[in-house]
């Protein structure tokens, strides 16, 4: 039942990827202007509060991963795309944000809306 030392080191080398091998279409594409949703679940989320309602641009699509908000609560993987989204510090922090500072934050499909 318990893993041996050899199995433990094998698991370190193999890793434990959160990627899901599922054919899920992305909801956004690189270059899209998006808004971080103002979501406040009482349960687990990887949406940082400071981004609520902020607009950014999709810089990169990392592919399909498990969704932590459901995965943490035994509600399945809900596989979806994860993107690197670029936010301007001015948009996030207002006057306190640096003119030439940017935040790049990984966002799941369900954290974003398209800005039309």
């Amino acid at each position: 039942m318990a893993i041996t030392a050899e199995q433990a080191l094998g698991a370190v080398a193999a890793g434990a990827s959160a990627r899901v091998d599922a054919d899920v279409a992305p909801l956004f594409k690189v270059g899209d202007r998006v808004r971080a949703r103002n979501i406040n679940p009482r349960s687990h989320t990887r949406m940082p509060r400071y981004l609520h309602g902020c607009e950014g641009v999709v810089e990169r699509d990392f592919g399909v991963f498990a969704f932590p908000d459901s995965h943490a609560h035994e509600q399945g993987d809900q596989p979806q795309h994860v993107y690197s989204v670029r936010f301007s510090a001015k948009d996030v922090w207002g006057r306190e944000g640096g003119e030439r500072d940017f935040l790049l934050v990984d966002m799941w499909d369900q954290y974003l809306d398209i800005v039309s």
Partner: peptide, 12 residues
């Protein structure tokens, strides 16, 4: 200089 802060929210 431009500063880019990467907040690792996902498994990347």
């Amino acid at each position: 200089a431009e500063v880019r802060v990467w907040d690792s929210t996902s498994e990347v």
